[in-house]
């Protein structure tokens, strides 16, 4: 009996240690990745990085300014397409939807968010690139918008559901039509939560690379036209990382530092908005 008790205690200790070890193992790559990004990134970032376009291989210096601007343009355009769709789709789910149809939409959104993003890129290629006879920033933005859509939809719906019914009733009782109530009362009181969701969605697509491969394509030069191929930070990181040139590797690390800083800032902002609800 006593030996059995000891065995049980020992097993408990062993398993607890195992869980601790697993946790440390899981966090190790995080530490390593951040260490390398900081170490390699800071040494390659300077003013040129933010003002110059990449130099041809073999020439030192150059920057990723066109990629940063291109990413900004892509994200902004994607938001213009994806946010209204997601937010008003969510309004339907939380304010009007019958439970059956809403479940179907919700399920579709969840499934859509699990589709590999490279497939989204292929679909947009067939939808926009082939008819327009060329890669374009617009196609890239559409692909990113399709990735944002389910995220924005689901988070917005969660937020709208948290708005108390009494608030809506108070407005309706004053004779305000339902649609104005939804716009001015329901959406307004859920605004901070919705912003959190939007920021998280933007953070997610800011780092997406695969859907841009056959849509925005990338560009070594400046471009700000929606109907032409455009540079994007993640695409540049990809192309430079797999190139054999040390100078380009350095640029890729710099780009990684910028991208990670951006995502970090966005998720901190999202947290801040989420907290002061």
């Amino acid at each position: 009996m006593i030996s059995y008790r000891l065995r049980r205690k020992l097993l408990n200790l062993l398993m607890t240690l195992g869980m601790l070890t697993a946790t440390l193992l899981v966090l190790t790559p995080l530490g390593l990745i951040f260490f390398h990004i900081l170490k390699m990134g800071f040494s390659s970032i300077n003013l040129d990085f933010f003002t110059q376009i990449p130099k041809p291989p073999g020439e030192a210096g150059g920057g990723m300014a066109n990629g940063i601007v291109g990413s900004g343009l892509l994200i902004a355009t994607a938001s213009l397409i994806g946010l209204p769709l997601g937010i008003f789709g969510a309004v339907y789910l939380s304010e009007y939807g019958s439970s059956r149809f809403s479940s179907l939409i919700r399920f579709s959104a969840d499934v859509l968010s699990g589709i590999p993003s490279i497939i989204t890129g292929m679909v947009v290629y067939g939808l926009l690139v082939v008819p327009m006879k060329g890669f374009s920033a617009l196609a890239g933005a559409l692909a990113l918008a399709l990735i944002m859509l389910p995220i924005v939809l689901r988070t917005t719906e969660e937020q709208l559901k948290m708005v108390p019914m009494t608030l809506r009733e108070a407005s309706l009782a004053l004779g305000v039509p339902l649609w104005r109530t939804t716009l001015k009362v329901t959406l307004k009181s859920a605004l901070k939560g919705i912003i959190t969701g939007v920021l998280l969605a933007v953070a997610r697509v800011a780092g997406e690379t695969a859907p841009l491969l056959f849509t925005a394509l990338g560009n070594m030069f400046w471009s700000h036209k929606l109907n032409e191929p455009i540079a994007a930070l993640p695409l540049q990181i990809f192309n430079f990382a797999i190139s054999p040139y040390d100078d380009w590797h350095r640029l890729a690390w710099g780009g990684a530092l910028v991208l990670v800083t951006l995502m970090f800032t966005l998720s901190l902002l999202a947290r801040w908005f989420g907290r002061t609800r």
Binding site: V26, L27, P29, L30, L32, I33, H36, I37, A203, R204, A206, G207, E208, T209, A210, P234, I237, F238, A241, A252, W253, A256, L259, V260, M263, S267
Partner: peptide, 12 residues
């Protein structure tokens, strides 16, 4: 860790 873009995992 979940928020890091996959291109950065690839770079590393």
């Amino acid at each position: 860790l979940a928020a890091i873009p996959s291109v950065i995992y690839g770079l590393w």
